[in-house]
Simulated scan of single mutants.
Amino acid sequence: MTVQGTCDPGFSQVAEEFEANLASRGEVGASVCVIVDGEVVVDLWGGEAAPGVPWQRDTIGHVWSCTKGATALCAHMLAARGELDLDAPVVRYWPEYGAQGKDATLVRHLLAHQAGLPALREPLPPGAFYDWKLMAERLAEEEPFWAPGTAHGYHALTFGYLVGEVVRRVSGRSLGTFFREEVAEPLGLEFWLGLPEEQEGRVAPTIAADPPQIPPTFYIRAFTDPASIPALLLAHEGGYMAPGESDSRQAHAAEFGAIGGITNARGLAGMYRPLSLGGGDLVSREQLQVMAFTAVAGGDTVLAVPTHFSLGFMKSVDNRYLPPADSEGALMSATAFGHAGMGGSVGFCDPAARLAFGYTMNKQGPGLGINPRGQAMVDATYRTLGYQQVRGGGLWYI
């Protein structure tokens, strides 16, 4: 398949892996962008956005949980300005949230997946994820599944409403509006939490992953134990996870701060570019250290595999020692932070390496971490920068 764009000769390994993804690893259409020292060294795209439709420079797509990085950034920007205290109780900003024993929940618990609200116990009406007010009310009324702060479990679908409602209460603007006015527009990014209708024709529809022979433990629990958190998470989502629904105009237009972002690799890397250089105009260097520091690590109550998170961002985790179905992690350096999206898209920065990285695609992979296609390009980027990989902990060293 045709690959277009630019690549600095020194980063030819990244281009080679990108081409190999399209040629032999099941990639359909994708984009990758690498920024080092603030300069774009890789900006490539290729394959098909839809059958018979080439992936263009301006093609965009659904990046799923990469969106969480954008949502977390908004909270940290408010914290850096002194408007939001991450160690304060959530009820300081959202009084209704204190119901059902949640009055001691801290803002940092929301960001670190420690809030105990990864799912709702009762079904949601159709289209509930497009009704911000309804979702905020339901979460405020819900009893946590564990005492907040005592464990961590991935809040795959609720994260955006929990953190986003705090952003809304503090800033007086919806999450999507705040992100557009404070991040996307100032940085010149084509990245939306709530896609304008005039941009709809540029979106590459998502292609679901091929069913794995052995699914990850998360899905096994979801399909075999109806009372489990994974089962409730997937069942009580108002129809959003039904085939094709996430590609609907209503879904794209929604300000869905957990998994609704629309962009491409250039948009993801561009969002992390200022953070790779010390924070830029977005956050202070002190706040950047908070964003990079690992807040929780170890067994994930929801995903049933080890996960590492800072306040709102994924950290490097090496799960290659687990059975193949659960072995996907996110291999970056110890100083990197960002977020992967369902199927393998990823955006992150590494301030120590002055690196910002983005990868998006339309054909999803079946795992729970960075898809091997994306990991191959992350690996090539680090090799080019002089890093070597070591087994265990997902760490890199020079």
Rank of each mutant, 00 (worst) to 15 (best):
A147W: 06
G149T: 15
H152Y: 12
G153Q: 13
Y154P: 02
H155Q: 13
H155Y: 13
F159M: 12
G160Q: 10
L162S: 05
V163Y: 03
V163R: 12
V166F: 01
V166R: 05
V170G: 05
S174M: 03
T177H: 02
F179A: 01
R180A: 11
E181D: 08
V183N: 00
E185I: 00
E185A: 06
P186Y: 09
L187D: 02
L187C: 00
L187N: 04
L189F: 01
E190A: 04
G194M: 13
P196R: 00
E197P: 01
E197N: 04
E198D: 14
E198Q: 05
E198V: 00
E200A: 11
A204D: 08
A204W: 07
P205L: 09
I207D: 05
A208Q: 12
D210Y: 03
D210F: 06
P211H: 08
Q213T: 13
I214W: 11
I214K: 11
P215M: 03
T217Y: 09
F218K: 15
A222E: 09
T224H: 11
T224Q: 10
D225S: 06
D225F: 11
A227N: 13
S228I: 09
S228T: 05
A231N: 12
A231S: 13
A231E: 15
L233A: 09
L233F: 14
H236W: 15
H236R: 11
G238R: 14
G244P: 00
G244W: 14
E245L: 05
S246A: 09
D247Y: 04
A258M: 13
I262Q: 08
L268R: 09
A269V: 05
